[in-house]
Design a protein around this nucleic acid. Structure first.
Lengths: 221, 221
DNA sequence: GACTAAATGAACTGCCTGGTACATTTAACA
DNA sequence: TGTTAAATGTACCAGGCAGTTCATTTAGTC
């Protein structure tokens, strides 16, 4: 087993002799870095802090990722690729239109609620005008399929007379995303200003139902 | 006229003799600081940079605001107080329910679209878990009235048989806000991932109409 | 016009932080 | 088993950056 993987998380000191484990070290760094960037943003994150919480040293961060932004970009890329994977696992085409939209809206809501890290990183990236998304080749070729899946289900719904025509697939996506995203991204400020916890279980189920309902109402003929 | 207000924005060097202008200096600092925080976030903002773009010196920032976070908090507080003012200017009570909701949704959408600075600062604050909102007395006593206004109009709508009963005023607010907020907050990432510019004029009017329509459909009996 | 408090300027400091130089060890392979 | 490239550790550095020190000027007040 690798040093990075086998070392006691914090307590153990590096042994005098070690085992090489490029992939393990890489993963270890990415995991810790993600936490740090999620918690503190790009400018707020500290490379030293990341290194300290790693089983390896700062040296390796620069060895594998070049610089702080390279590390950040790697974290970002991995996250988007993960989303892409989940997206593909959805099989809307085999469901009736209404059920397909219900599933998609519900899934999107849940994914955001269960992955606040994702939401926070996207916020951070937007604060930086998404310039790291822009310069990432891996993400440029990602080709998120959400829109196509939506269009297919929507078109079927229109053909069946269930949905009203004239809506852009992108608009459907934006509505679904907005409701799911906002619920996580603005949790802290809503809590302070309105004293309401959007993260509480009951609030979550209520809001989830509302989101799905809102989307269906928006679509219905 | 004050030094801060009368000095040529960038070019002019401070005159050997100057005029005192506490309020002008304060305002000048706040204006520049807001730009810096909006653009770079709290951790990304540089006090030296703010000072440099001010008609005054770094010394005065600490004189008036204590430290970097104090300055940030002041910017935040002023921004929320401004919103509060706008909110009060809305007179939903004098409008029929549907018109009231249409106005509110449209106004909210427009306010966000026209004030990306506001949106970005709220994002920044949420990244920091809204801990500066939490520690601000000025904001604690702000008492945003949006919810009450919504409830009043909604109740009238229900009484008139126009709206279906059982919806929480807060949920209406959250839906309206989510649609308006997301359209600005995630502009950069949406552009990179989908190649779509949510800030383009046509996109804006279409999305505005969609937002209003979505809210009305969510409410209708 | 002397006195005083508020307001302001200029230079300075010490730590933080991203990044690097240099040395060493591991592991594949001939 | 000797050679070599990849992988890793340690110590260090220079610039950046929040915050301060000290001195000065302005503008009310008696």
């Amino acid at each position: 087993m690798s040093k990075a993987a086998s070392a006691p998380p914090k307590t153990g000191r590096r042994p005098a002799s070690w085992t090489q484990d490029p992939e393990g070290v890489r993963r270890n760094i990415l995991t810790v870095a993600k936490e740090e960037f999620v918690e503190n943003g790009l400018s707020g994150a500290r490379v030293d802090e990341i290194a300290a919480r790693t089983a390896t040293s700062k040296r390796m961060i620069y060895y594998y990722f070049g610089d702080k932004e390279g590390l950040y970009r790697a974290v970002l890329e991995e996250m988007y690729e993960r989303i892409r994977g989940f997206e593909r696992s959805l099989d809307l085409a085999s469901l009736p239109p209404v059920e397909a939209m219900t599933l998609l809206a519900g899934f999107t809501f849940d994914y955001h609620a269960e992955n606040p890290d994702f939401v926070r990183l996207v916020m951070v990236e937007n604060i930086h005008h998404a310039r790291h998304l822009a310069t990432s080749d891996r993400i440029a070729t990602l080709n998120l399929s959400a829109i196509d899946m939506i269009r297919e289900a929507y078109d079927r719904g229109v053909a069946a007379g269930l949905f009203r025509p004239g809506i852009e697939a992108l608009d459907i996506h934006l509505t679904i995303s907005a409701l799911a995203f906002y619920n996580v991204s603005n949790r802290a400020s809503i809590r302070q200003v309105f004293g309401h916890d959007m993260g509480a279980p009951e609030a979550l189920v209520r809001r989830r139902a509302a989101a799905i309902d809102t989307v269906l109402r928006m679509l219905r003929a």
